[in-house]
Design a protein around this nucleic acid. Structure first.
Length: 841
RNA sequence: GCCGCUGUGGCGGAAUUGGCAGACGCGCUGGACUCAAAAUCCAGUUCCUUCACGGGAGUGUGGGUUCGACCCCCACCGGCGGCACCA
């Protein structure tokens, strides 16, 4: 243990001293601490949090004349672990923006809530025999206490909770709209079946990591199962194109584009010889069709059984079996060596009538495109490897290169391609697509990597899907006026064992009979956690409305969200799903904007002091409760904003934290004496000595906050405080300005100083400071004198003097003369008010 | 492998438009205060060289453009994130 490095608070102990010395040390320290501890964070923070609560200071203002600002945090999953120091980073950022905007005259919507459905609560409940509802309620209570202890300016009257029936009524309502629009359908699909996760559950592709469940690390198998699917692919184009409308980091836009994976190409139909069957392939390179010397279809493809010749049957069956038992991991990462089997069938290349063999291979994915490709081994690396291994013909269709050396590129003109010969790539693509369309053997096609969204979860702790399956085969929605379909209050949640959710065990709930005596069974699947979080930002606008998702006028008033801050782990899925739902609701006329989140910011991660991700197992987790107790919420807020740019990951440092506390003390001492009185060097007159630095500070801090560069804003205020310490007199208006600028970051201390400066009613709606442009201009400027690009001297001259005069002064400078004396001046570059560079040789 | 971001003192970071690299903070060193220590206040702190004045080098590496490059261009190396046989 390094005691010197862990001076927690004003050095409370010194282990190397003898006992007697330590005793004396403690006694004197305590006396002094009592004298100088004018700023007591516990008292002040408690006092002002009470004040804000009593006065409903942060209740959202409804005022048609004020501009609006909607600052949103990604609402947390209230885990049993409690708050992590990473949470307050983003929360502080939106809080600073909210508090500044209020002071600038905006009406601000700044809410918080709970994404409270989810797997851990269900797992915990199963393990302990408790109800996830009680467990979740307890966790929310703890999260709320922790968040409130940090002094965020949330309007708690708008708190939402995804597990509240009054909330999920509308989640179910949205599902019903999706169903009515044909965007929700049931399908028997190959799903990721994890038999060991909670007695058997299905997880989405994105929740599978390395062939195992993301949570728990259980093995995953592929199994056909009837699932609810949402047709997100119908919105693929708009989800890409509308990214142009929002102010998001380029990296996130790029990730979403890649995830959707739009590629433009052509569908081409190949007739299977001696058969009525056709194989449709998708290709982005129709220009290379003359070079297609075989087809490959995925082993799972429907046509495999139909076209395989009797002689090949055994080999094909064996290959299919081998592939089916391989995990996705083995099919991709582990096996770079191409495998495959000839089906015995031949297809006809529509463009030249050539007979080409049809193979199956696992390098063709069933889930992408049509599950079949035309192989052009001369110009595609994968096809090249495959053809080389199985000794299949290669026909180059672009001039140049040697096939012995490997796959060829597609520069230059086409060859061996009939009517395409001599064309360049793009012309050939366009010409070929026209040809295919004219001859009815293909057409232009856009393909996506994005899959439809598997929306069912075999869980208890989620929104019930409001659907009944009747004995006659009909499927109906629960009528809207009967929503919400409540999650039954089960006391004993157990896996059904069949792969269905634990709801299947609850006979009273599952079995229904209609007025005609027709029997039915409720859908036992529940919704994924993504459901509730895909629209919660709409509910904050009108959280108590029991007639609608939210009032249209209020939605028009507040949307879109002006600032959305959260972790980059939600870069793709949450943000894509929320955008998808938003667009569906836009099409229904429910919401007024195409996009939900105008500006998005991803905060970086706060790493442990060893520069590694914080985790229990590494023992580097910092608990915010502990920091609030020892240093106060203001110190935590200040430190997290000062440690580096919001968007970057930075390592936690106890020393840095301590420094932040010391600076708050320093600001405090600048204005307040040991008797807790305003210091008498704070005066009403202004001797002008702080004019320049004050006005610079207001300008920079305002601008930096607006652009969320909190670290540099803080450093500018530090510079101002350093200057203020050197001044004899401190104009009261400047001190008030400083306190106002500090208020968004360290609100409790700012409130206390504001009241000590003689103001009543709190600082939250005090007017944001302004600066005087005329005080920013200096009469003289320092000009850098360089010789051959190296700084050799500096002169101070009147601002805006003529170029010629500046050049003359520069050349006359004594130090410059030393450097230029015996040399020829070849050139002089003069940048007024900045620099003179003399080139000699 | 592909796509994106990133690399600056002992440490976190700053330099917003191509114009003094290292603001601000931490740490460290020294001074004031104190019997003493802590705290506080003040000063110094990129590296090499020099008693000093000064000089030289320097923003991952190598090249280039420019009077002038952390900044723009080319190639490479390391770190982080995403995707991964996507036809």
């Amino acid at each position: 243990m390094h005691f010197a490095k862990h001076r927690w608070y004003r050095g409370t102990f010194r282990p190397k001293d003898s006992f007697l010395e330590s005793l004396g040390f403690f006694l004197s320290t305590n006396i002094i601490m009592e004298e100088t501890m004018a700023y007591n964070h516990k008292d002040i923070e408690q006092k002002w949090q009470q004040f804000w609560s009593d006065n409903e200071t942060f209740k959202t203002v409804e005022d048609a004349d004020k501009p609006k600002y909607y600052a949103l945090d990604m609402f947390p999953y209230p885990s049993g672990q409690g708050l992590h120091v990473g949470h307050p980073e983003g929360y502080t950022a939106t809080d600073i923006m909210s508090r500044m905007k209020r002071m600038q005259g905006y009406k601000v919507l700044h809410p918080m809530g709970w994404d409270a459905f989810g797997l851990p609560a269900e797992q915990y409940a199963m393990k302990t025999g408790n109800n996830p509802r009680d467990f979740t309620a307890k966790n929310i209570q703890n999260f709320k206490r922790q968040i409130q202890s940090l002094g965020f300016s949330y309007d708690w009257s708008r708190e939402v909770n995804t597990t509240d029936p009054a909330y999920y009524k509308w989640t179910q309502w949205i599902f019903e709209q999706l169903y009515k629009k044909g965007l929700a359908y049931e399908k028997e699909t190959l799903v990721n079946w994890a038999p060991d996760l909670m007695g058997g559950t299905v997880v989405a592709n994105e929740e599978v990591v390395d062939g195992k469940t993301e949570r728990g690390g259980f093995p995953v198998y592929r199994k056909p199962m009837k699932q609810w699917i949402l047709k997100i692919t119908a919105y693929a184009d708009r989800l890409i194109d509308d990214l142009d409308l929002v102010d998001w980091p380029d990296s996130i836009k790029e990730m979403q584009k890649n995830w959707i994976g739009r590629s433009v190409g052509a569908s081409v139909f190949f007739n299977v010889e001696d058969s009525e069957k056709q194989i449709e392939v998708f290709t982005t390179r129709p220009d290379t069709l003359f070079g297609a010397t075989y087809l490959v279809i995925s082993p799972e493809h429907d046509l495999v059984d139909q076209i395989t010749t009797p002689e090949s049957k055994a080999a094909v069956e064996e290959y299919k079996k081998a592939v089916a038992t391989k995990s996705d991991l083995e099919r991709t990462d582990l096996n770079k060596d191409k495998t495959g089997v000839f089906t015995g069938a031949y297809a006809v290349n529509p463009v030249n009538g050539k007979k080409i063999p049809v193979w199956i291979s696992d390098y063709v994915l069933a889930s992408y495109g049509t599950g079949a490709v035309m192989a052009v081994p001369a110009h595609d690396g994968r096809d090249y490897e495959f053809a080389k291994k199985f000794k299949i013909d290669m026909v180059p269709v672009y001039e140049g290169g040697n096939l012995e050396d490997g796959v060829l590129d597609s520069e230059g003109g086409l060859i061996n391609s009939g009517f395409l010969d001599g064309m360049d790539k793009q012309t050939a693509i366009d010409t070929m697509i026209s040809w295919l369309e004219e001859h009815g053997v293909g057409h232009k096609k856009v393909n996506y990597r994005l899959r439809d969204w598997v929306f069912s979860r075999q869980r208890y702790w989620g929104e019930p899907i409001p659907v009944i399956h009747w004995e006659d085969g009909e499927t109906t929605l629960i009528p809207e006026d009967e929503l919400p379909l409540r999650l039954p209050a089960a006391t004993d949640i157990r896996p059904s064992g069949t792969g269905e959710s634990p709801l299947a065990n609850l006979d009273d709930w599952v079995n229904v009979v209609d007025e005609n005596g027709r029997k039915g069974r409720r859908e036992t699947n529940t919704m994924p956690q993504w459901a509730g979080s895909s629209w919660y930002f709409l509910r904050y606008v009108d959280p108590k409305n029991d007639q609608k998702i939210a009032d249209e006028d209020l939605l028009k008033e507040w949307l879109p969200v002006d600032l959305y801050v959260g972790g980059a782990e939600h870069a793709v899925l949450h943000l894509l799903y929320a955008r998808f739902w938003h667009k569906v609701l836009y099409d229904l006329g429910v919401v007024p904007t195409k996009e939900p989140f105008q500006k998005l910011v991803n905060q970086g991660m706060i790493l442990g002091s060893n520069h590694e991700k914080m985790s229990k197992s590494k023992g580097n987790v910092v608990n915010p409760d502990d920091i609030v107790e020892r240093f106060g919420a203001d110190t935590l807020r200040l430190y997290e904003m000062f440690m580096g740019p919001l968007t970057e990951s930075v390592a936690w440092s106890e020393d840095g934290l301590n420094g932040s506390r010391k600076w708050i003390d320093r600001v405090w001492r600048l204005m307040i004496d040991d008797e807790n009185q305003l210091r008498d060097h704070i005066v009403t007159e202004n001797d002008g000595s702080l004019d320049m630095i004050y006005n610079q500070t207001v300008k920079k801090v305002t601008d930096d906050y607006e652009n969320m560069r909190f670290n540099t804003a803080i450093s500018q205020m530090m510079v101002f405080v350093n200057e203020a310490y050197k001044a004899d007199k401190l104009p009261a208006v400047y001190m008030e300005g400083l306190v106002k600028m500090l208020a968004p970051i360290i609100p409790h201390v700012a409130e206390e100083l504001w009241s000590l400066l003689g103001h009543e009613g709190g600082i939250s709606y005090a007017e944001w400071p302004t600066y005087d442009e005329s005080k920013l201009v200096e009469a003289t400027v320092q000009v850098i004198l360089q010789v051959n690009g190296k700084v050799r001297s500096k002169i101070t001259v009147d601002k805006d003097i003529a170029k010629e005069e500046l050049e003359k002064l520069a050349l006359a400078d004594a130090k410059i003369q030393q450097w230029t004396a015996d040399k020829t001046v070849r050139k002089v570059i003069v940048i007024p008010n900045k620099i003179v560079n003399i080139v000699v040789g």
